[in-house]
Write a protein that binds this DNA or RNA. Structure first.
Lengths: 102, 102
DNA sequence: TACACTATTTATAATAG
DNA sequence: TCTATTATAAATAGTGT
């Protein structure tokens, strides 16, 4: 992505991986916060590092996000769910996102 | 941020907000996926749009992420939790992230 | 070991379709 | 409602301290 783009696959060097994890985790949290503010969305992000450490962001509170998520899932059980698969890029694994229909 | 940067506050125009929501949601999901691959992290992202639509990404499965989250929270109940507050930028609201200590 | 720098890639605002 | 284009802002990989 910068000064020589990197391939999206696991970074083997533990040191580099930690540095990248810090930078990108910070960036992801910032983006999540911006999106929640700009678009009035309720957002929860949960990250477990490869060492098992937990990092989280919630625009409201994580428990409220999880509750709402579970409730939505229950309500949608009798409805069909559309699963759309898109490629992040041609070589990479498939990224699956699920959209509820209501 | 581009062709005239925007302030991070709720976009009032519904049409613009929707377009921005689509773009940034896509970007956030991509970043989450990249981070999970690059750094071997388990990540879950839950987004409710302002119209109540649910969008989600999980590197493994959302239920496994939520389970692990709940378990971690239980285990940490007797430990102290550090709350660190950082500014996304000087004018904006405070963004709170919580780090577990173990 | 965590920041600071910066060249470069990536994300995206405005716009049109 | 979503996609495409493009100019520009933001993110970040590699490096230095």
């Amino acid at each position: 992505m910068v000064k020589g783009k990197i391939a999206i696959r696991k970074i083997n060097c533990s040191k580099s991986r930690q540095v990248t994890f810090f930078k990108r985790r910070t960036g992801l949290m910032k983006k999540a916060k911006e999106l929640s503010i700009l678009c009035d969305a309720e957002i929860g992000v949960i990250i477990f590092s490869c060492t098992g450490k937990l990092y989280e962001y919630a625009s409201s509170s994580m428990s409220s996000v999880i509750e709402r998520y579970n409730k939505m899932k229950q309500d949608n059980q009798q409805q069909s769910i559309t699963t759309e698969e898109i490629q992040v890029n041609a070589k990479d694994q498939v990224k699956t996102r699920m959209y509820s229909l209501n």
